[in-house]
Design a protein around this nucleic acid. Structure first.
Length: 586
RNA sequence: GUAGGCGUAGCGUAGUUGGAUAACGCAUCGGACUCCGACUCCGAAGACCGCCGGUUCGAAUCCGGCCGUCUACACCA
């Protein structure tokens, strides 16, 4: 369906053209004075300059041409030159009916030319548990992915595991110390390696910090780890077998944790997958004359004339010839282009890495790893802070594991359910999980991604105010009424509004596609949150002063139910795009 | 030091392609309803939109300067 704002604009543009004014002045926007009108056009004031006329005179002329259009119930000029517009109830109702009849997309068209997008979010390290630092990337990335997919793009999510580098050498070294008898350490061993991993996930999680700690104090230990890393990376069989055990054990644990967050990836590639592409890539950069030695390291200049700040060169190889993060990220682009050839690659990463990604992006474009036609986007997000405004920590001051954070929130929700409800324990548990996740995700996504925000568990889990539970509560309320009415979907049309609050609700529903489009274009999930909060409010006003089930006129009641159904469906679609769902009951 | 982000009621946040009276929530106070599920609704109070200046019919929004704060600034990822 054509967006409602677009439809209005087309009519208003005709008005401007009919008076011989440029059509660019026919821009229509949502009213910022809802008490005066629903939509407004400010073009007359802008046009006043060009045509050297009083703005109000222009507005009056245009309004005269628009008079009598069945789409409007009001269209008037207001000093100094606003054109205020209200839609007729019939038009709104027919538009909303059209949305309701499209039970899959609610009138939202797919984009005209779908793109292939790779989105890189997650970035967990193997052998290390997910912590709160991984939360935002996962939540924001998942929502951007779902939204783009709904809009018709082909989206490939890649977790981009941190599975390369010294950390693996550390684990191997520590393991060798503890279990030197394992065949993996026997260089003369020539047979098959066991399929069973010689450790569990919890052992692994304990081994890494232990090894990391030792390496900081013990030079020899660190040396051993670096040697192990080197040997691993240069094909030592036993170590590679260990690496795949570490990967298997760790990845299945990571999957379990991401599942709790309702976050799924299409690809579980890691830094190690990029390594084979490095030698050729580096050689080509040298051959093409982009890479040169500076202070011993191999670098590519990425300065541009328009820079207002110093942009250091992008380092490709360290002075000892070893590769580094940049190298891996660039090589990752190599296989992404080779295997998938996406139209754009989106990185959902902590905003502190912005300069680093500027360097990498420029280097990729300059050296031709990524063609001009492929867009590279950096979606930087801010820090999640505690109530004190400083980065979120446990009470002990350490980094909080994601699992613990989630269960703390779930517990909080469970308390509330037990206080009020008559649910059995199992249902209560499940509901607490669902509602708890909504609290965490909505709390995060309702802020602009690029800003820091304060994680306030009491506020996020409250069912009042702009929170996930409030949205869910509204959905559950809709479901409950529909269940009592014994309908899930209803035929017939939505009638023109019978009250101020119903008009408000219908009007709010018409804004769905505009909200989605703008969230999609800006990769800004918080715009979806803002929209559904407004929608939930509009619904609750309607709910408060309308007796739906007691309505005696059957046609009106059917219309109410259909409106209710649409509201519920739109809300559920929206939260699905945000990455959570509603329970049947709360 | 250089560059960038941020600064909006007590608190947490929208709004930043310039538009009418700066929006919302929490907390506070006062009502309505207590009926379709932890509620919902209506209202009050609360803001020199960090400060100063500029651009214009009009600035939270654009420009310049200052203050505060966070962050980044080549061999860590």
């Amino acid at each position: 369906m054509k967006e409602i704002l677009q439809q209005i604009k087309e009519v208003v543009v005709e008005g401007f053209k009919a008076c011989d004014y440029d059509e660019k002045y026919g821009m229509v926007s949502l009213s910022n004075r809802p008490d005066l009108c629903q939509f407004q056009c400010n073009g007359a004031m802008a046009a006043a300059k060009e045509y050297k006329k009083a703005p109000i005179a222009i507005a009056n002329e245009v309004v005269e041409k628009l008079a009598g259009n069945a789409m409007f119930s009001k269209c008037e000029a207001c000093p100094p030159g606003f054109i205020n517009i209200n839609l007729s109830d019939e038009f709104i109702a027919s538009f909303v009916s059209g949305m309701a009849d499209d039970t899959e997309r609610f009138g939202v068209d797919k984009v005209a030319s779908p793109k292939k997008i790779m989105i890189d979010y997650g970035g967990p390290n193997v052998a290390k548990p997910l912590h709160v630092g991984h939360l935002r990337s996962a939540i924001i990335g998942e929502s951007i992915k779902r939204t783009a997919r709904f809009m018709g793009d082909e989206v490939i999510g890649d977790v981009h595991l941190g599975d390369w580098g010294l950390q693996m050498g550390l684990i191997i070294t520590e393991l060798k110390l503890r279990k030197p008898e394992l065949v993996y350490f026997d260089e003369n061993y020539d047979g098959e390696y066991p399929t069973e991993a010689p450790f569990t996930i919890s052992e692994l999680e304990e081994i890494y910090p232990c090894a990391s700690g030792k390496s900081k104090e013990d030079e020899a230990y660190k040396e051993a780890a670096m040697t192990a890393t080197y040997e691993l990376q240069h094909g030592r069989k036993g170590y590679q077998a260990l690496l795949s055990h570490i990967l298997n054990v760790s990845v299945s644990d990571l999957k379990r944790n991401y599942e709790k967050l309702d976050v799924t990836f299409d690809l579980w590639k890691g830094e190690s997958d990029a390594q084979p592409y490095i030698p050729d890539m580096v050689q080509k950069m040298k051959d093409d004359g982009f890479a040169y030695i500076s202070e011993g390291a191999l670098v590519v200049d990425v300065k541009e004339d328009t820079d207002t700040k110093e942009v250091p060169p992008c380092m490709i190889l360290k002075s000892d010839g070893a590769s580094l993060y940049n190298t891996t990220d660039l090589a990752t682009m190599v296989w992404r282009m080779k295997d998938y050839n996406p139209d754009s690659i989106v990185y959902v990463v902590d905003k502190r890495q912005e300069l680093y990604f500027t360097q990498v992006f420029r280097c990729a474009k300059k050296t031709g790893i990524v063609p001009e036609s492929t867009n590279l986007y950096f979606v930087g997000f801010g820090t999640m802070n505690g109530k004190d405004g400083k980065p979120f920590k446990t009470r002990q001051g350490g980094v909080m594991r994601l699992e613990y954070l989630l269960s703390e929130v779930e517990e909080k929700m469970l308390e509330k359910i037990k206080e009020n409800g008559t649910m059995n324990d199992e249902d209560a548990d499940n509901t607490a999980k669902i509602v708890g996740l909504s609290a965490v995700k909505y709390g995060d996504l309702s802020n602009q991604a690029s800003k820091d925000y304060i994680f306030d568990i009491d506020r996020f889990t409250s069912s009042e105010g702009n929170t996930g539970p409030y949205i869910l509560y509204t959905i559950v309320r809709c479901k409950s009424i529909l269940a009592k009415a014994g309908v899930s979907t209803s035929d017939g049309a939505i009638l023109p509004a019978h009250s101020e609050s119903e008009r408000g609700l219908q009007l709010e529903l018409t804004k769905f596609m505009a909200a989605l489009n703008s969230a999609y274009e800006d990769m800004a999930p918080h715009k979806i949150c803002a929209y559904i909060y407004d929608l939930a409010n509009a619904f609750n006003k309607f709910y408060h002063d309308t007796k739906i089930l007691a309505e005696e006129d059957e046609a009106v009641k059917a219309s109410y139910l259909k409106l209710l159904c649409l509201t519920k469906d739109v809300l559920e679609k929206a939260i699905d795009l945000l990455g959570f769902k509603a329970p049947e009951r709360m």
